[in-house]
Design a protein around this nucleic acid. Sequence first.
RNA 1: GGUGGGGUUCCCGAGUGGUCAAAGGGAACAGACUGUAAAUCUGUCGGCGACGCCUUCGGAGGUUCAAAUCCUCCCCCCACCA
Length: 428
Amino acid sequence: MNVLQTLKERGFIEQTTHDQELEDLLSGEQVSCYIGFDPTASSLHVGSLVPIMSLAHMQRAGHRPIALVGGGTGLVGDPSGKTEMRQLLTLEDVNNNAEGIRAQLARFIDFDKGAVQENNANWLVGLKYIEFLRDFGRHFSVNRMIKAESYRMRLESEEGLSFIEFNYMLLQAYDFLHLFNAYGCQLQMGGSDQWGNIVAGIDLIRRAKGGSAYGITFPLITTSAGIKMGKTHKGAVWLDPDRTSPYEYFQFWVNTHDDDVPRFLALFTFLPMEQINRVKDLDGAELNLAKTILAFEATTLAHGRDQAVGALEAAYNMFGARSIPSDLLAASSIPREGAAKAEDSVPTTVMDLARLEEGVPAFELFDEIDLCASRGAARRLLGQGGGYVNNERIESFDYKISLVDMKDNEIILRAGKKNYHRLVVSEK
RNA sequence: GGUGGGGUUCCCGAGUGGUCAAAGGGAACAGACUGUAAAUCUGUCGGCGACGCCUUCGGAGGUUCAAAUCCUCCCCCCACCA
């Protein structure tokens, strides 16, 4: 089975150009393929996981993945699929962000074994306007461009489309051409909103070099609730452990919607499909175990196995241990017998002994340790019965949390069902 | 550059002198129900030790007992015209 089939089977493919030729290409010798990543932040988030995983699949199949950081295009801003103009980045930001992104990609693809990272700032920033127009601008038809879906939304919007953004397609096409020349890269992959840009690159390669190139787009992954994957009320779920802790990351995956579990297992883990397909028949508590495995595998990929085990144990500690049958997704290396263990993956605050001796009103404390956004919010939460000490409901908003509540040298506070916070006393 | 229309609480969007912390919807949060799910129902949804006080309606001034609402200047967005 070649990569294309693997990707298809696992739900990565929305659309491809030249189905048959692409199939042949990928069945043959090593192919270089690239995906662009926007350096809008120093970290990637779950929304980029589909492209990342697809590169990983490529490498596993013996091909060469090229991760292109859009250091140059990031200076312009891609209008595709967006309703308003993006904040423009400075070159310095972009370079910093590119560093962070590389480190994260390295967990999924191996730069020591052929994978390449490039930054298009290297060839875009020095472009000469007139030369560029003469050499490449003439290959682009404005008539065609304005018909592209990627521009239509903005063309029809009140915001309009600025000229700088209109150029984006040319720059991305030029990237593809550059990588074609430099690496013989014949395949570009990207989100479905990139279709127009990818096709523009393929055209440019044909017109300018007479070469053939191909494209693959990924579907936009939405949850069954219809929301774009990877967004939560707290914002994006980041791959950077400083932004989204491994425990939170794990929890994000555990909270996957029922209907999404098999699909997400296929996309976001490397577990074999025949095992994943069996998950489709599960429901209820059994399905929850599959979610646990999904979370474990996804966390292992992003943060390493130790962190994943830590997150799993922390979850067991908070929500109760489980044991996972050995025939469920057997390829997973998840520890099958759950050991609940006090873990510091749970946010912890160290308190002065003196304050706890005196007692701190619950609403004040909940605000202070960020279980609530403000004292007012804490009052409301507690008033509605959503606050707990050691899993017992706090009955009044000004109940004083004190040493009386100390159990095993800690006090576990909880807001709602899932937000825990641990309080310990300073040693003195 | 001209003319007209706009900028409201997380988002959309009402509100054109007091009854406005500001309708309605969405999102979000809590409770019940559950499987750390979804759906549903109920409640909450600017801040504050809080039946009161304080800060919000693009920005800065002004009129008035009283302004999101009226006036002046400025900034930004949009449409049409040039």
